[in-house]
Each structure stands twice: as C-alpha cells, then as structure tokens.
Amino acid sequence: MSQEHSGHTEHRDDIGSKMGMWIFIFTELLLFGGLFLVYAVYRNQYSEDFHIAASQLNTFLGTLNTIILLVSSMTVAMSVTAIQKNDHKLSFRLLLITLLLALAFLVNKYFEYSAKIHHDIYPGSDLVTNLKHGQTLFFGLYFFMTALHGFHIIVGMILLSVIAYKVKKGKINSEDHVLLENGGLYWHLVDLIWIFLFPLLYLIS
C-alpha cells in the first residue's frame, strides 16, 4: 500500500510549504502574544515593582545573548544564500556556526539562571513569594517567558541539526532547499521573540 500510495504524496509545492511555515509562525507569535498580554496587564498595574525587579536582571548577559542571536540569524540566512549558490560546504559550515551560537546562548542562559537561583530568586521560592506583588509577578513572567523561549531555542537547534545533516548528505541542495528556508524562518522567529523579550524584561527599568 505505502508504495502504491507514496506515488501521489510526492507532490512538491515550495510556495505551499513556506505558506505552512508562515502560518505556524503566526501561531507561535500568538502563543507568546498571550504572555505579552499578561505582561502588559501587570506592568500597567504594578509599574513601580516591575521597574525595581527588572533592575535585578543582568543586562550585560542579556545584551550579549541578543548579539549572539542576531549573529546566528545572520549566519542562518547566509547558509540559505550559500545553498542557493550551490556551495554545500559553506552552507553546512554556516549552519554549524548557527548551532554553536545557539549553544552559547543556552550556556549564558544557564549562568544567568543559576546566579538567580543562587540568590533564591526562582518561582515559588520563599523570597520571591514574599516580595511585593508586582515583583513576584515580574519574576514569574521572567522565568516563564525565558524558559519557553529557551525551549524554542532547543527545538530550533534540533530542527537545524536535522537540516545540517541533510545538507551534508546532499538531500538539501540548490534545487530543493525549502526545508532549509523554513528552518531559517523558524530560527528568525526565535530571534524575533527574543528581540521583544529583551527590552521588555531587561531594558525597561
């Protein structure tokens, strides 16, 4: 059956695939949109507490991570261009650089989290639950939003690893590279969400 059936499912439509990816990206934006809404409500209600709590975050690490993600977005875009110009090796290397940058982001995040946890700042800790309401909520939002974003980084890394493997094997090539483009789109989304998280959590203080 599967042989006789696979004949017709081999239908290829690059525009359709990209359209599907864009729609998926909408849903991801809406997923975070719910959190931005909660942020907006509580920022409005407790603006002073948010201000104080935000000053506890490490702006240096935040900025560093922003730069890392921006560069990784560039490398993944360059990887797409490379494959279009039929340079497999370069495309593969650029994907590896992207993955390394993603890893660097997570390492930074790890140090950031552990410093916070070291100071008893984590959701549900005695310290956080006894802070002023707005500060408790700020740290709740901080951990929830960055953890969810971190999860997206990991998903993106898995996706890009699969893509890098396929580039290496020549399954993604200058003729058929919609998967790489979609992976790139997803990675830009992960970057874009961070671009919003960074000022909301680190800079407005």
Binding site: T27, G34, Y42, P123, T129, H133, F143, F144
Partner: peptide
C-alpha cells in the same frame, strides 16, 4: 488555539511553581 495553549501552560506553571499570574494572594 495558541492563546488557550499558553493559558493552559500558565495553569500548569501556577500549580507547579506558584508564578502567581492568577492567584490574588500573589497579586495575580
């Protein structure tokens, strides 16, 4: 659907980590 998705995750986080989004005792 994504809106309810994130909302349901918030319920789970609320139960596990006491983030306080919907808990009046924590300002939610």
């Amino acid at each position: 659907t994504p809106i309810v998705g994130i909302t349901l995750l918030m319920i789970i986080a609320e139960r596990w980590f006491k983030i306080g989004f919907f808990d009046p005792a924590l300002g939610g």
